[in-house]
Design a protein around this nucleic acid. Structure first.
Length: 814
DNA sequence: GAGATGACTTAGGATCCGTGCT
DNA sequence: AGCACGGATCCTAAGTCATCTC
């Protein structure tokens, strides 16, 4: 850092301190403080490591252990580790083969650098999982992934993948590159729309972004769909017709049609309204509730709420104070005066008989005969046919959630202050119906009426109601395979692709802003750097006490990061540790550029742990800024962009065209995994994980034995063949050869499977696949490498991504 | 502008259900 | 036939972001 830089910095600091005009921020901080004073910090910290709290304690504890390990013994083990790992088998080889030459080496490097991995190792040792040795290689892989959840290891990977276009970020800025920087009105950055012709328009035109669409508006006024309209018209009653229509419907290529313009979401909408939860069925008389040892017959309302609690008795929720407190409070509201007088202590309530009863019921359900099950299935199908579809603009579309959420106890995630509260039963009188004027309005259940019927074609929902826990609105909307969702999805990826075009510019700009005189710009640029580099979420402000304490980028607090000028042989390391969405812990150690580091020090100066790190920034400011840089750009576009570009790059690096299909799929899963790690998509390890892993290993061992035998036989057959050269021996030799080959293949398959599984232990691939990865990348990859699309996308996914499957050619590049 | 509201996407856990094994 | 397993599906909470309201 040059002298003037330093100077610059200190000047700013001075400015900063002097300038105190940000009261609102201050207020915010203040609130925070107030609120949190009571919370002891220790606890808070603690919580982080327990992010997964709702579920198994064990898991949690393990996790913690792991964490400790990691932190404590960091690097040293690595070495050991590595030696130990030395032998890893085929999988490794595998990787070496295709990896080494392409990009895998850096991953490797990464790994080497990373101390933490062995944590996993230890962990496992501790747990006595011997089968592991066989799987060292896996361990290695695994640890690489696992750490993410638990820790630092991830960062490496993250960094790697995360920085989709690393080059520009890494080197020091060259200030002159971008003069734009500081001021609000910087035009330079603004990429003009001319560059967005990049939109991928496979078949038709379609792709415009919203704004463009707006321009175009009129035409659809005329009539949007056209093509298939004929078939779907009015009231095709008979089965045949319907069938035909259905098929056509399935094939409907909405992506080849014009879009509605300017906020209009549909022209015609007709549906059957929601399906309400079944009414409460009182308990049989022989199932009793006891209070303080004495049987009490509850009033129907009180009883219903009691059953909600009873059904959750085995869940950890019911042991939590907040949950119990909230539940009890709401339960009392449902009691009669007498009940309220009698029942004053939840701990004296005995729900066991109720709980047993429900268990028995579910058991009975499992024991049902085939016929009974079929009957139920048929009934469900009937309901689906009746309520599960709507008619939108001449097409029959599937509804995602046509069932109204049944009453129950609210299960918030993390330390949610409202967990245990009673979710009320939704009645028709709570429901707003949305449909078109010229449609048949669904009738309310007899004796009831809707709260409202409206005809708003600027929204996509069919039904809405206000939920009573947070007071938020819930909706019934269409399935992801519907036109209305698909278009939006497609558009999302197109926006991300537009970002690709100008991301370098934007990166240069924010790097420039790290030096700004304006505190606001500095904070904004550092935050944006995190969002880009680490794929953090924007981080809206949340109302305190209403939800679990979670944060995203803009709402990070001082307590969520630690600065290490030097750590593990790297300079300027930022250690993140905070609860993110769904209270999933984000833990990562990231080396950053010096300027970022210095800025962070500055932002943290004179602040308390619970003060906002970016006190002059919020998502609204950030997004406004982004909007100026690129039309349609918001913080979350960076997540989409970085996820997709990472997939694309990883696929390019990892795929070996000579591999067989399972190996290619492993490569795909690895690429997918890199994204999941980047986005911090975690899952609780399946309860049966260790066991099923063990089973797999047993199979592998058996296969190895088999292979050894086969090889022995082959050897002797060879010897035989040398001595006697007759046809028969020759043939025998051939068949032995083949057998060995076959077994080798089988073994390979098994091992690939094991590796994949191990690596996936606590990483959820589904979320990124469904929400962040441009499906055209996957489709193109499948086409290019002759992998059946079914291996990558299941039926539902294929429906959702039908547009991409139809339009992407093998040369598609994100 | 700040805060509230509304619409819509993203998310992990629970549950269902088909499949392959014993 | 019974069962375990794991992927698919369901469920709904928890985010993001634009817009409305004062």
């Amino acid at each position: 850092m040059s002298g003037d830089q330093v100077h610059n910095d200190s000047q700013i600091e001075a400015d900063f301190r002097a300038n105190d005009s940000h009261k609102h921020k201050k207020d915010k901080e203040h609130r925070h403080k107030e609120h949190k004073k009571d919370k002891d910090r220790e606890k808070t910290k603690h919580n982080h490591s327990e992010h997964r709290d709702p579920s198994e304690k064990k898991h949690k504890d393990k996790h913690k252990d792991g964490e400790k390990h990691r932190e404590k013994d960091g690097e040293k083990h690595i070495e050991k580790h590595r030696e130990k790992d030395g032998d890893k088998h085929r999988d490794e080889k595998h990787r070496e083969k295709d990896g080494e030459k392409h990009g895998d080496k850096h991953v490797e490097k990464h790994r080497e650098k990373d101390g933490e991995k062995h944590r996993e190792e230890k962990h496992r040792e501790k747990d006595g999982e011997k089968h592991k040795d066989k799987h060292k290689e896996k361990d290695r892989e695994k640890r690489r992934e696992e750490k993410m959840k638990s820790s630092s290891g991830s960062l490496k990977i993250k960094r790697e993948n995360g920085f989709a276009s690393p080059p520009c970020i890494k080197d020091e800025p060259a200030d002159e590159a971008y003069t734009i920087s500081t001021t609000e009105n910087e035009k330079p950055i603004k990429r003009s729309r001319d560059d967005d012709d990049l939109d991928y328009k496979p078949k038709k035109v379609k792709t415009e972004d919203v704004k463009k669409a707006k321009k175009r508006k009129q035409e659809e006024d005329v009539k949007p769909k056209s093509k298939n309209k004929s078939k779907v018209t009015g009231s095709q009653g008979d089965g045949k017709k319907r069938k035909i229509k259905k098929e056509e419907e399935e094939k409907w290529k909405w992506w080849e049609e014009e879009r509605h313009s300017d906020g209009v979401k549909w022209k015609f909408l007709e549906h059957k309204g929601p399906l309400f939860a079944p009414p409460y069925e009182p308990l049989p008389d022989n199932v009793k509730f006891y209070y303080d040892g004495k049987q009490v017959k509850l009033s129907p309302n009180a009883e219903e709420v009691a059953t909600f609690f009873a059904k959750m008795l085995d869940h950890e929720y019911t042991t939590k104070d907040i949950f119990r407190k909230n539940f009890f409070k709401d339960w009392k509201k449902e009691m009669t005066a007498d009940e309220r007088n009698l029942i004053t202590n939840l701990s004296k309530c005995d729900f066991n008989e109720l709980s047993q009863y429900f268990k028995a019921q579910s058991e009975a359900r499992k024991q049902m005969t085939k016929e009974e099950k079929l009957k139920i299935k048929a009934e469900n199908e009937r309901i689906l046919q009746e309520y599960g579809f709507c008619m939108m603009d001449n097409h029959k579309e599937r509804i995602a959630n046509f069932r109204i959420e049944p009453p129950g106890l609210f299960r918030g995630r993390g330390d949610h202050p409202k967990m245990g509260k009673l979710k009320r039963r939704i009645m028709p009188e709570h429901i707003i119906i949305n449909c078109s004027k010229d449609s048949k309005v669904p009738p309310a259940p007899s004796g009831h009426k809707w709260k409202e019927v409206r005809h708003d074609n600027k929204v996509t929902w069919l039904v809405s109601w206000t939920e009573n826990i947070q007071g938020s609105i819930k909706y019934i909307m269409l399935n992801p395979s519907s036109r209305i969702k698909g278009e939006k999805d497609w558009q999302k990826y197109e926006t991300a692709r537009r970002l690709k075009k100008c991301v370098d510019k934007i990166r240069n700009t924010y790097r420039e802003d790290w030096k700004s005189k304006e505190m606001k710009a500095r904070q904004r640029s550092v935050a944006l750097y995190f969002i880009d580099k680490l794929a953090l979420r924007a981080g809206n402000e949340k109302e305190e006490g209403e939800t679990a304490d979670t944060v995203g980028c803009c709402s990070l607090r001082v307590e969520h990061i630690n600065l290490h000028p030097e750590m593990d042989g790297q300079e300027y390391v930022v250690e993140f540790d905070f609860p993110g969405k769904d209270s999933i812990r984000y833990y990562n150690k990231v080396p950053v550029e010096k300027r970022v580091f210095k800025n962070l020090q500055l932002f943290m100066e004179n602040k308390q742990p619970d003060d906002d790190l970016f006190d002059r920034l919020n998502t609204s400011i950030l997004n406004k800024h982004l909007q100026d840089l690129m039309e349609g750009l918001t913080a979350k576009v960076f997540r989409t962009y970085n996820a997709s570009i990472t997939l694309q790059q990883q696929l390019n690096e990892l795929t070996n065209g000579d591999d067989n299909v399972p190996a290619k799929i492993l490569s795909y899963n690895r690429a997918n995994r890199a994204v999941a790690i980047l986005c911090n998509h975690q899952r609780a390890p399946p309860k049966t994980f260790e066991k099923s892993m063990m089973n797999l290993q047993t199979k592998i061992d058996a296969k190895k034995d088999q292979l050894a035998d086969a090889r022995r036989e082959l050897k002797s057959a060879k010897a035989d063949a040398k001595v006697r050269r007759d046809e028969k021996t020759k043939k025998a030799l051939e068949s032995k050869k083949k057998a060995v080959q076959r077994i080798e293949e089988q073994l390979m398959k098994l091992e690939v499977q094991a590796t994949d599984k191990e690596e996936n232990k606590q990483i959820a691939l589904g979320t990124s696949k469904l929400n962040y990865l441009d499906p055209r990348i996957s489709v193109a990859w499948c086409k290019k490498f002759d992998v059946p699309i079914e291996k990558i996308y299941n039926k539902t996914q294929r429906e959702k991504f039908a547009w991409a499957i139809d339009m992407a050619e093998e040369d598609f590049q994100f």
